[in-house]
Amino acid sequence: MYSDKVMDHFRNPRHVGAVENPDGVGEVGNPVCGDMMSFSIRVRDGVLKDVRFRTFGCGAAIAVSSMVSEMAIGKTIEEALAMSNADVARELGGLPPNKLHCSNLGADALHAAIRNYLEKQKEA
């Protein structure tokens, strides 16, 4: 059903957990629908130094979260905001058509954490 890459990220997810004293946090999805992702980020000089996630969801949702965190670390804020859901699905070697909404959630959750960071910057 899933590509080897999806199964690898599902079995050995990278960067699970939460950043301590995060610079931004984002949560998307809902347990009602079966998928919920929570991302936290650390930003230094406009670069994502650390990205951590917690995900409630199917194999695809967990693999997508893991891949998003791996892809995002080291990217500038601008680069990370430009990451699309399609990019994530492509990096995973594709997802079954009915699971693409999971990859949509992944990038959305990262972007939500970045927006939270940017808002805090504005306030400061």
Partner: peptide, 19 residues
């Protein structure tokens, strides 16, 4: 389950974007 209140997800699942 605080986020669960009033959630609607039919759209999430029916909106399938082409990758």
């Amino acid at each position: 389950y605080a986020a669960a209140a009033g959630a609607a997800c039919e759209d999430d699942h029916s909106t399938v974007e082409e990758g």
